[in-house]
Amino acid sequence: MAAGGTEGDITVRELCARGTRSLDPRAQLLAVTLLNLEVALGPDPWHQASAMALAVAATLFAGRGRAAITWVLLYLGFYLAVRAIAQLDLLMMAGPASTLIMFLRVMPVFVLASNLIATTRTGELAQVLQSLGAPPRLIVALCVALRFPPTLAHESRSIAEAMRIRGILGTPASVLGHPVRSVERFMVPLIGRVGTIADELGNAVVARGGETSERRSSLFLLQWRGADALLCVALLLLVAHSVLAQGSMS
């Protein structure tokens, strides 16, 4: 069969050059791990804000400006809500306030994890996991998991629309009036769809040799760059600072 594209067709090499991510998946995996540690160690606002700033910077660096702005607005919104609740000084608001504080604390991890999911290709992830010694089945499971968040978002939207059609999700009052029933009615189709999609994605990964134990390659060059090192060093320093701060407090 003849080779070559037509004049004007983009070449694969051009696509590879364009598509080289500014943050290596290995650096992002390490960064997510460090961020988890930091979140566990550093409860004070300064550490939280620093962690969030680094996660947002990574998102901006990956060219995801709109996502970065959304996260920042969400973070600020939660922060202001916590401050407002503190001003009210109502015991009954202690529960919601605690929930918001917990969200604030773990949000940097979500920011960086969502960046990892959005910017890492399945083949890249599989290669990185294999180099870390992950067993083939785990690699397949994580590759499927990588594709899940966007899929889950689409399925959730469709189910919410289906509920609107049936008048189940008519008003906030109807949801608040029957919260358990509303959640159940959302979860039944969601679980069904998630199960089906997981099967289909898993089959697609396996049918393409995803369970291989042979050494993988990657179309896109995996390469540590300055930005990767900078992110990881910054997070390491933040973790170290948290450890020292914990030590001095005790």
Binding site: C16, T122, T212, S218, L219
Partner: peptide, 24 residues
């Protein structure tokens, strides 16, 4: 929809070869 394991066409085309360790 659910058999695409990558979000880019070129990455999808390469996936099986990557699993075979084919050179770039």
């Amino acid at each position: 929809r659910s058999q695409f394991v990558n979000s880019e066409v070129v990455a999808e085309l390469a996936f099986a070869c990557e699993n075979q360790g084919t050179s770039r």
